[in-house]
Amino acid sequence: MNIFRLAGDLFHLISIFILIHKMTTSKSCSGISFKSQALYLLVYVTRYLDLFWTFALYNSTMKIIFIGSSAYVLHLMTGPFKPTHDPNIDTFKVRYLIGGAAILALLFPYKWTPAEVLWTFSIWLESVAILPQLFMVQRTGAAETITTHYIFALGAYRALYIPNWIYRYLTSTFWDPLSIIAGVIQTVLYSDFFYIYYTKVLQGRKFELP
């Protein structure tokens, strides 16, 4: 554990808190992509299968929080707040993301065991799971400020993992190329968003695309 990893995980927790806070206070999930949220649940369930055979207090607790909160968000979106979700603007074709992640997982896992292939699948899928959400923001041309805070916190989490990986490599030669490549791709996908978030939202203006 190092400060970058800890900060990254905290941003991940903050993003989930912001998302649930936004939904429960506004009683609405407008502006949130159901498809991205469904992909995240798929990511957590396929990555954290090792909950059944590995226990570490910090990691296991976080894993349960991520799976549980993700399932809760989907419950809110399909149950109480379903009328506020507009499927007509949530039209990204996720089958290509799932298919691409599945192909990469089958071709290049660390080991060809079901758990390792699913772990690799989750790493690749996470790297692109935000795309339906970013696509939705792009289609509508604007986003509520709280939604932009959510996307920022979620992006900051994986961005902070990059110095964490550098630190771990330098201090213990820990080296996880799959996570690193996918994590860098994930961060790059957020980069446009980060730029607009920085130049607009942080200066008190609304998040609107040029």
Binding site: D9, N59, K63, T113, Y161, F174, D176, L178
Partner: peptide, 10 residues
């Protein structure tokens, strides 16, 4: 050398 399934991150 890879991480070889030693997944101690989230």
């Amino acid at each position: 050398e890879g991480n070889e399934g030693n997944h101690d991150e989230l």
